[in-house]
Design a binder for these strands. Structure first.
Length: 586
RNA sequence: GGAGGCGUAGUGUAGUGGUCUAACACGUCGGCCUGUCAAGCCGAAGAUCGCGGGUUCGAGUCCCGUCGCUUCCGCCA
């Protein structure tokens, strides 16, 4: 080792010891004769002192040091003179008087400040990611991420789970997201796909009898990016045999409940986690990934307005729609401009308009008041519990639009009213998803979760009679309004799997071509099984309090899926294309 | 594919039609300096205002296009 201690280690107990330190020049303070260098490594910062009276040679070399030079320094630890201690530094009681200094490597002037936590354009951070990763924020996030995966590995290993790697080059399947695809040199015109998840493979491991599997699995989806979505991402992937959904939920609930305090200062809002059916979540929060840190639930006014003379409500109700409201406490004083902002937000999410009732001192003020009977107004105020000072936001439309719009308005008002406690992780389970939904474009049913999800036992026969009504043994886990995971009990019987494939419009031949390996495996004693997968970076993002997933990834890609550091994707040589039997079209 | 935001010295910002001959802070370079820790003081260098076109007597500023980053919609079994 080039160093005897790291830069966070030395205390006054070490006074008198001769030590060797190595790291980066964090800051220099050159007084001409006396030079101070803050030396940084991963573990901390230690002040080095160069005094020409102590070592003229070391002092001479020190005068050449610049930010981010890599150095090795030997000297004696001493407590700082009284009054010179720095209580803000862990090593602030000591300094090292250097007698020998070696420059291990010089550094160009960094393209942005390493030693100051200033905001830097993200494109520049990504281009020089190795420098960005030197900064405290990214160091902290990467180490947090390591602690999270380490905790998961230990937690699951202690409970008899086996970590098994599954291949990255697999077979492309038609369902689901767009695959990333890899051409085959040995098989002209054929392609591997990168896994969207190890779904089928982990099910096959259950057929193999491992009973409890997990993997910190890399997954790939060729879809457009979001703040919480990257083209490649990592999931904690878990699968268990001989379990029902309760076992899976309790496993992950236990893991997360213990994980949060073990790796962060955040608090779990409630454990066991609250459970909502998909229907409840949509009805009360207007979202299948509700932020349950605050209430402000959607309130159904439909029945109160059944006889309403207001034409907008009439038309919506006649078309089978609904009228719902949320109550924003203390927002009655909103200006015209603020109301307009909310209306605009509502329009962006598909509403035709937004009705408001402002609970002013002199009484309810509303642009729609004149269309409502006194009884209707009274009923609305009573149902919503509106009090003086409150603002009611009302949307009338088809149920999915009402949910989308009020769900978004709820989040916006939660933000405006500062109801989103950053120190809290509010987990919740969403259960009882529909199994299938109608795809109007392709004129067929498709799996809401994936086509291996088991239907409720009592809904099995709906596969043929009323597929849209079948419920799935599927569950999502959400935290602070993010979907951080999802799973299901799987189909483990060949006949049921075949029926499901038929229901989603696949012929037996197509099913055999795409999923023959799985169907065949089910003929060899496949145990009942189920599992879950959780997005690692989304979880770490919440634990770190970061606004997007890139902040907890070492080398993320941009929104256009480009790696600004390496410039991937890039062209390849004619020779490589030739080997792969590929011709570029344009 | 669509909508919004941003783009000015190495970095972060100011500048919203006319002494802008582009300002400030940090950083950089040079000088002075033996107790600093965001060291200090003095001085200096450093910007085709993302790129292209247009409007105008005059464009960093207005308009159009384009590129990059980003947020959202679509998409994400």
């Amino acid at each position: 080792m080039l160093k005897s201690h790291h830069c966070g280690a030395l205390r006054s107990d070490h006074a008198g010891e001769h030590v060797a330190l190595a790291g980066w020049v964090h800051r220099r303070r050159d007084h001409g004769n006396l030079i101070f260098i803050d030396l940084r490594d991963r573990f901390g910062i230690t002040q080095l002192v160069f005094n020409p009276d102590h070592s003229a040679t070391a002092h001479q070399i020190a005068s050449q040091l610049r930010n981010e030079y890599v150095i090795r320094a030997l000297g004696t630890v001493r407590t700082r003179p009284e009054g010179m201690r720095n209580p803000d530094m862990a090593t602030g009681d000591v300094e090292v008087m250097i007698d020998q200094l070696e420059i291990l490597n010089e550094s160009r002037e960094p393209v942005f400040h390493i030693s100051r936590e200033t905001e830097v354009d993200e494109a520049l951070r990504l281009r020089y990611r190795y420098l960005d990763l030197r900064r405290p924020r990214m160091q902290r996030n990467m180490i947090l991420r390591h602690r999270v995966t380490r905790f998961m590995r230990e937690y699951l290993s202690e409970r008899d789970f086996v970590e098994i790697e599954t291949p990255i080059l697999i077979k492309s399947t038609p369902e689901g997201a767009r695959d990333y695809v890899v051409p085959s040199r040995l098989h002209p015109g054929r392609f591997y796909a990168l896994p969207q998840s190890p779904q089928q493979l982990k099910q096959l491991l259950m057929v193999s009898g491992f009973e409890r599997y997990f993997q910190i699995a890399r997954c790939f989806r060729d879809e457009d990016q979001r703040a919480d979505r990257q083209p490649e991402f990592t999931q904690l992937d878990v699968e268990m045999s001989f379990v029902d959904h309760e076992d899976v939920l309790q496993l992950l609930e236990g893991l997360l409940t213990e994980l949060v305090p073990a790796v962060s200062d955040k608090r779990v809002q409630q454990s066991p986690f609250p459970r909502l059916t998909h229907t409840e979540a949509m009805a009360r929060y207007g979202s299948d990934k509700p932020d349950v840190r605050f209430e402000m639930l959607l309130i159904d006014l439909t029945d109160l307005l059944a006889e309403s003379g207001f034409r907008v409500f009439q038309q919506v109700l006649q078309a089978g729609g609904q009228v719902k409201a949320i109550r924003a406490p203390g927002c009655a004083g909103y200006s015209r401009r603020q109301i307009d902002e909310l209306t605009e937000l509502a329009r962006e999410h598909g509403a035709k308009g937004l009705a408001t009732i402002q609970m002013r001192d002199e009484g309810p003020h509303s642009p729609i008041a004149r269309f409502l009977s006194e009884a209707e107004m009274t009923a609305i105020l009573e149902r919503t519990g509106a009090e003086p000072g409150d603002l009611l936001l009302i949307v009338a439309d088809k149920a999915p639009v009402v949910a989308q719009v009020l769900g978004q308005l709820r989040l916006e008002m939660g933000r405006r009213l500062n109801l989103l406690d950053d120190d809290v992780l509010a987990f919740a389970w969403i259960t009882d998803f529909p199994l299938l939904e109608w795809n109007a474009e392709e004129e067929r049913f498709e799996a809401v979760h994936h086509p291996f999800t088991a239907p409720f036992d009592e809904d099995l026969d709906l596969l043929e009679s009323a597929p849209g009504r079948a419920r799935a043994k599927a569950y999502d886990i959400v935290a602070n309004g993010y979907e951080i995971g999802g799973g299901s009990i799987r189909i483990h019987r060949r006949d049921v799997q075949s029926r499901l494939f038929r229901t989603i419009g696949m012929t037996d031949e197509e099913a055999h071509a795409q999923f023959g390996h799985l169907l065949e495996a089910f003929e060899f004693g496949a145990p009942p099984h189920g599992g879950i997968a959780a997005g690692l970076a989304r979880l770490v993002m919440l634990l770190a309090g970061e606004p997007n997933i890139r902040e907890v990834m070492a080398f993320p890609k941009t929104q256009s899926a480009v790696d600004l550091m390496t410039n991937a994707p890039s062209g390849i040589s004619a020779r490589q294309l030739d080997d792969l039997h590929i011709q570029i079209k344009d």
